[in-house]
């Protein structure tokens, strides 16, 4: 049980025929309709997360849905830091997971006294 698109035949708004589109998210082909955001295509396909946090590597997807929390960031056609909930999907978009590793601390040399520090 997960997120999904409202099936057109059951939707009280009575949608006209929607133009389909296809994107690739994290290597996985997904289909959606023209007008959806990238997050909408992902959630419509049942995908709840598409990012890993820098610190603990925890999965994140969409949280606020209105562009204020920046949880949903993806790389779209090579462009970083795109909020998936704000960017309309275009047919053929290649969307990659954005994972920003934290800088690795370099061990520092022992202080004081004669001997050479290790590198």
């Amino acid at each position: 049980m997960t997120s999904r698109r409202v099936p057109a035949g059951q939707d009280p708004v009575r949608p006209d025929a929607a133009a389909p589109l296809a994107i690739v998210l994290d290597g996985q082909p997904l289909t959606g309709v023209v007008g959806q955001t990238i997050a909408g295509v992902a959630l419509g396909a049942g995908r709840l997360s598409w990012r890993r946090t820098s610190g603990a590597g925890r999965p994140r997807g969409l949280f606020c849905g209105i562009g204020v929390c920046f949880d949903c960031l993806v790389v779209v056609n090579g462009q970083r830091d795109v909020r998936a909930c704000q960017r309309r999907a275009r047919d053929g978009d290649v969307v990659a997971v954005q994972h920003d590793a934290l800088p690795v601390a370099v061990p520092h040399a022992p202080e004081g006294g004669g001997g050479r520090a290790d590198g």
């Binding site: 997960t2 997120s3 999904r4 209105i66």
Partner: peptide
């Protein structure tokens, strides 16, 4: 994942027809 704000549920339902 799967925890949303109430506003997100509304934005997705009204703006994209996503449950």
């Amino acid at each position: 994942p799967g925890v949303f704000t109430a506003g997100a549920a509304q934005a997705l339902a009204k703006g994209e027809r996503i449950a």
